[in-house]
Design a protein around this nucleic acid. Sequence first.
DNA 1: GTACCTGCAAACAATTTGCACTAAG
DNA 2: CTTAGTGCAAATTGTTTGCAGGTAC
Lengths: 138, 138
Amino acid sequence: MWTLDEGISRLKESGTKITAQRIAILKRLEGRKDHPSAEQIYQELKRDFPTISFATIYSTAQLLAEKKLIQILTVDDKRVNYDPDPEPHGHFRCTACGHIEDIPITESLVETLKMGQDSTVSSVQLYMYGLCPSCNVR
Amino acid sequence: MWTLDEGISRLKESGTKITAQRIAILKRLEGRKDHPSAEQIYQELKRDFPTISFATIYSTAQLLAEKKLIQILTVDDKRVNYDPDPEPHGHFRCTACGHIEDIPITESLVETLKMGQDSTVSSVQLYMYGLCPSCNVR
DNA sequence: GTACCTGCAAACAATTTGCACTAAG
DNA sequence: CTTAGTGCAAATTGTTTGCAGGTAC
């Protein structure tokens, strides 16, 4: 996992400008274990950054994904979720409460899957759906 | 893979009404190897069925997914794609041309993944992204 | 006959876009 | 100084919803 400073220098490498907004977004994502939506990031940033806009959130997220700092998940069919951990791993989403949980997968499994393709694979996503333990009993 | 007749009886089992529209949708999906979007199904059906509506497409697809006749894929973050093959398997999506290709995965892998969870897993999706062979050379 | 289904149009919601302004380098 | 980034509002688009009329059973 990256730190704020690593994130900033990763962006600088490719000539991207470092703005206060981008630093704020990186800071919010740094080391996070959950999978915030654009809306969630927007709400959180608005506290310290009242004029921030969705345009900035979405474009910065795109940028961070290109630089392999985050992953953009489509595990929820309604909205996008950001995962600050860029390493390949799976995700479980509870269809009742919407909670998203990481699922470890071995690097060798990912490699095997990539190898089997005649295409150039740049990203692998494993999604599982069902009921989480606490929703299952209700 | 199911046939039209099997599809119809699967629906009947649960007391669902068999309408001309539902038969038409089943017919369109039966044995298909691609992954049509709602729009695509709508356009195709409109030829023989000029008054069919999106409401019917979406609600029927939901129904078919519940009856395990199709899978609803979120491999494309813009739209939903229907997969007439309900058996677990992966999907590769070319980020350039948008083409979606099936990826075989072993049943034992799926079982292993399900087993590893403390949640009740009802569906597993494996998505891979990158450039397909023909887009890769351009 | 009745509960469910369809079609239509309007509503919705997440994301994208155009553009004038601002700020990083 | 120049180019890229930001914020705003409007536009876009896939999907959902409410409801009046229709149809399966």
